[in-house]
């Protein structure tokens, strides 16, 4: 199982967390103003990166907070975890959103 570094609690085993999907997927500020394709992209299109992937995790069986992570999906190696609102540390995700 993965060992994940919660930015608030430190390194904890994977069963303490819930995966939160791709990070930095911004909900359109005015849903009524975007096209159906743009809305569908927000709901469903994902990078599905084979490489460094920016994603969210939630420490559900710990502090309960969401945070972000950079993980290489070719190896499951975590490069970094960072708090909501912080910029991802270098290297930047392989596929810019």
């Amino acid at each position: 199982m993965l060992l994940i570094e919660c930015p608030y609690c430190g390194e904890r085993p994977e069963p303490e967390f819930q995966y939160g999907g791709q990070a930095h997927v911004a909900r359109p500020r005015d849903p009524a103003a975007v096209s159906t394709q743009e809305w569908a992209d927000y709901l469903y299109r994902r990078d599905n990166t084979r490489g460094v992937h920016a994603e969210r995790w939630r420490h559900t069986h710990g502090c309960g907070r969401f945070f972000n992570a950079l993980r290489d999906t070719r190896t499951d190696h975590f490069l970094a975890t960072y708090r909501v609102g912080e910029a991802p540390p270098a290297p930047a995700p392989a596929v810019p959103r």
Binding site: L2, E14, Y19, R71, T73, T75
Partner: peptide, 13 residues
């Protein structure tokens, strides 16, 4: 497993 991955392996749990 709960997260996206191309490793072809997952957790024992």
């Amino acid at each position: 497993d709960a997260y996206t991955s191309y490793t072809q392996r997952g957790g024992l749990h």
